[in-house]
């Protein structure tokens, strides 16, 4: 127990465990609150220094599309926040190829660098995780 951590035990036993977290995003950005909520949780969880990955599939790929301008609907444009994730050491962003193509999108349409995976590869990625959080 130390003064600097307010009495919280920070030795290897508790601080050394790094788990693989995957956030699965499947909803379009403004029609429901899921996309924004997912982003909020990702940012909060970033404080815990875990091994974080984000997956975008189905309508979730729309979350990271360039050129979102929300003034007209009076809703916060949270899309620039995806670009800030890098600053929190969240750099593993994956997009499912089938979802992207069905929506007429290409890698160039996204506002962040992503790795495009097939559905089969995405399934493999999901299997390697310790924790999966779905939005």
């Amino acid at each position: 127990m130390t003064e600097s951590t307010g009495g919280i035990d920070m030795d290897e036993e508790t601080s050394g465990v790094v788990k693989k977290f995957l956030y699965v995003n499947r909803k379009a950005p403004y029609g429901t609150i899921y996309a924004l909520e997912s982003l909020e949780v990702v940012l909060i969880a970033a404080a815990f220094d875990q091994d974080v990955s984000l997956a975008f599939l189905d309508d979730g790929v729309y979350q990271i599309v360039k050129g979102q301008h929300t003034k007209g609907i009076d809703v916060k444009n949270f899309s620039p926040t995806y670009r800030a994730l890098e600053g929190y050491d969240i750099e593993k962003l994956y997009v499912e190829k089938e979802s992207m193509e069905a929506r007429g999108l290409t890698e160039d349409d996204f506002l962040v660098d992503v790795k495009v995976l097939s559905a089969a590869e995405m399934a493999d990625l999901m299997e390697t995780q310790d924790v999966v959080l779905s939005f």
Partner: peptide, 29 residues
């Protein structure tokens, strides 16, 4: 463009006008 629904709407627009709300279009990029 480039979606399955676009093909359906192209067909629809031969007989029925289709509108989209611009603020919603712009919000979604």
């Amino acid at each position: 463009k480039g979606t399955a629904s676009a093909k359906k709407l192209e067909q629809t627009m031969k007989t029925i006008p289709v509108y989209a709300l611009q603020p919603d279009v712009e919000a979604r990029g």
